[in-house]
Amino acid sequence: MPLGTNTLNFDDEVQRLREKREELLDRVAALDPDNPEAARLEQRGQNIDDYLAGLRWARDEAYEDPDVSVWDADADAVTLCGLTGGEYAGVEDDVRSAALEREQASASGTSRVYMVAHGTVDAPYHDEDYSDAELLAATQQLPYQFLKWAEMHINRMTTVGGQEGNQSFSAAVAERRREMSTDEPN
């Protein structure tokens, strides 16, 4: 049983991300280029560019894309879900097993595919009758930018408690450094 589901309309997401991108442009442009915050915000903007590319593909091109046969219906939305602790652990185990099968030290690159495969409830590339292997094979065909966008939403729904209103640790460290640099010596 997933933590929760969310149906995400492609047009609504494109609009939301365009607005977020504009806000980031203003924030970054106002910062000194040497400010570490500028680099962090620029990376967020580049992620948004990837998400937008993936969404535009899903909305405008996916159904007719000859390279992605698993997207077998025209769609204007997908339904994604958060993973429970057990589901997330299963994804971690699957990723670890995939690395061992390939005799690799890590399979971190495949974790996105596993997250999206297991975090999709309803989408043209998803069939509830698929075996795990078929589901993974179908999800692997999707463009990186779409997978990146879907994974971001799945991660948000998987994360519980304490996220709203709390700073990330790295943001708290940056703030503490600013405070320390403005403190007068004793």
Results as ranks from 00 to 15, higher is better:
P2K: 03
G4Q: 11
T5F: 05
L8P: 02
D11P: 01
D11V: 09
Q15G: 04
K20S: 06
E22I: 02
E23G: 12
L25G: 10
D26I: 03
R27N: 02
A29K: 15
L31S: 01
D32A: 03
D34Y: 06
A38I: 14
A38N: 00
L41M: 12
R44C: 02
G45P: 02
Q46N: 11
D50W: 11
Y51S: 00
L52A: 09
L55E: 07
A62F: 03
E64W: 13
P66Y: 07
V70A: 04
V70W: 05
D72T: 11
D74L: 03
D74C: 03
A77Q: 13
L80C: 08
L83H: 05
T84C: 11
G85E: 15
G85N: 08
G86L: 14
G90W: 03
V91I: 13
S97Q: 09
S97F: 04
A98R: 09
E101F: 08
R102P: 01
S106F: 11
A107P: 00
S108C: 00
S108R: 07
T110F: 13
T110D: 15
S111L: 07
R112L: 11
R112A: 06
M115F: 10
A117N: 10
A123V: 04
A123G: 12
H126Q: 00
D127I: 03
E128G: 06
Y130D: 15
D132K: 11
E134S: 13
L135Q: 15
L135F: 01
L135I: 00
A137T: 12
P143L: 07
A150H: 12
E151M: 07
E151G: 04
M152G: 08
I154V: 15
G161D: 12
Q163H: 04
N166R: 13
N166Y: 13
Q167F: 13
F169W: 05
A174Y: 09
R177G: 12
R178K: 15
R178S: 12
M180F: 10
S181V: 08
S181Q: 15
T182E: 15
D183S: 00
E184G: 01
P185T: 06
P185N: 10
